[in-house]
Amino acid sequence: MKIKEYLSGKILYLTICFTTSIFCGVFLWLVQADLSFTLFLPVLFLLGGILALIPEYLRKRKWYSKLLAYKEELDRLTLLPAIIDRPEFYEGAFLHDILTDVSKSMNDEIFKMREELRDYREFVELWVHEIKTPIAGAKLVLENNPDTPAQRELDRIEHYVEQALFYSRSASVENDYIMRETSLKTLVSESLKQRARYLIANKVKIETQNLEPKVLADIKWLSFILWQLMENAVKYGASTLSFTGIEGNENVLLLIEDDACGIPAKDIERIFDKGFTGENGRKIGAATGLGLYLCKTLCDKMGLGLSVKSEVGIGTTFTLVFPVSYIFVSES
């Protein structure tokens, strides 16, 4: 709080001080008091009025600047009243009490929402696990009665169920993944095997190149991410999917390349945004805008990079970046 700011709140007080001093001077002059009295008394009067402000100003300035400093430092502002001392001056104490009540009610609200979110997450996880049993049952029924397209529809249902699970996980602060050493080959071929029927039915040609490099990843999460990328490619008309590993000094890259319709330049910046469907999504009409957002979120959590390059009419390349961990460095 600057002096000017403080004084601007005291204009009325100062005006009254000044006026009464003038009156005092005029009065003394009228009663023909001694000239030194007539001049000295009003000045003293005025000075007293102004000096009285100084301790109050200092007290307030101390508290307000502390408040300001805490406010800058805190990442959760609702905790502010709990940290700052209750000031001695009346307005400050009054405001402090009100702020405390406000923040308490806010914190209660946040706590309640957290609880609800956690319950909801637990429900989704439980539900996903429950629904996997009937899906497994239906898959077996179809295995015994083969050659219906229902098989691959079930695979898609399974994928959407998993999407719900991963979405609820991505929103949580807990990181329930385990990074293990694996090879690009394992990651790619496990997800290809799981989704074989869908890819075969859509006549997708698979090419793989240099998938020997080892990486650190959570296999289940990666399988979900790869499938999401593959499903998108197929949905937008890919007939060939190629997987290429590139080993660098600091990281291992996995390129997932398709020959689908490509992503317009104006959309490419935003394809990892939540809820963004873009021109292609609107054309196909079956886009939720969640798939790539989830891929990005899961990659961020695992510390992997995910980027995209695309050219309309030619295809799209997604690049997964696995940092080479110190484990491998120390081994070699």
């Binding site: 049993t133 295995e143 015994n144």
Partner: peptide, 9 residues
Amino acid sequence: TIRNELSTL
């Protein structure tokens, strides 16, 4: 369902 279908399979 699962056990019957597994059994058939």
